[in-house]
Amino acid sequence: MNARTLNRRLLGSRLVDSLVGPHGIDRYLELIRPTLTVFDARARVVAVEHQTERTVTLTIDPNGAFTGFRAGQFVKVGVEIDGVRRTRTYSPTISEYDVRLLELTITVREGGVVGSYLRSHARPGMTLHLSDAAGSFVMPAERPDRVALVSGGSGVTPVIAMLRTLVSEGYTGQIDFIHYGRRAADWLYKPAVEAIASAHPNVRVRYVATREGGERFSAGTLSRDAQVFVCGPPELIDAVRLEHPDAVAETFTPPTLDVSDEAASGTVRFLRSDVSREIAPGTLLEQAEASGLSPEHGCRMGICHGCTCTKQAGAVKNVLTGEVSAEEYEEIRICISVPVGDVALQL
């Protein structure tokens, strides 16, 4: 047991908890240094790089509360911007065996608050808040004989972790790595991937610029017997699945916000209860009740905060102020919120 673990055991003990209750030891430790927490996973930014004009790559030092990840998974990353903690999901891009320092590459989307903030404000010493890793876009423990890693745009991040993981465990099967970017200037991780390829003859690399005449994915791009892992926009995944129906895929669709005066349509998903319903008129509290759920609540007029719950994704409108918010992982009062489109609630 090293000193760090011992420290964590001691500070996390029941006796200490009784002495520092009800707030808990982290609420005191963080006042000394934000990353000193023993239960809350946090990281300190140690290096900031800009691979392209639209990205920022952060090297971060997670504290002992971070429990690691499997290549391909994502972590929720929280960053405070003008007093508000914004949370986004990013896939670490390092080998899953090498978690002393994590690396994240963040792409700035149009109108994206967090990406553009980190692109211009991330500095060594900054604190980030992490969650446990999650996600099912992972490789089977028994590695396939032949692997193809296909990515489009910022979908490169989880497959970089897969590539680095395979290489670091001495995988000897064939690895085909194909990355699609709009322009050559958007390509991510090219020098790093080429360095891997030159050191490992079983790694073949192709970078394609789709808007500069590069050939899109089609039949024959990859050998049929490769297990494909693909991450990127839905069109790329569809194209891959056409040729490789058993491809393991993950897509990302940036949230679209379409606010019209017409009645909203879409689905409300209550994730914890595993219940979904088509959007009906009324507040989310009313719709939850109509679905047979009994969420905690009080005043039903927005003052007591008793119905506060986490909106994981989707846009809602505050009926008192008319304000629309599409923030991920946002605390909302469901008694004064109506859905504007698809909404997923942790309820």
């Binding site: 405070e80 508000v84 903690r85 007591c304 506060t308 946002e330 605390e331 009062r333």
Partner: peptide
Amino acid sequence: HGQYDWTQIPELNSQSFEWD
């Protein structure tokens, strides 16, 4: 009371805060 719920910071969340 939820005065800091807008910060979206878990340790300032109205529904989970405990006091001395």
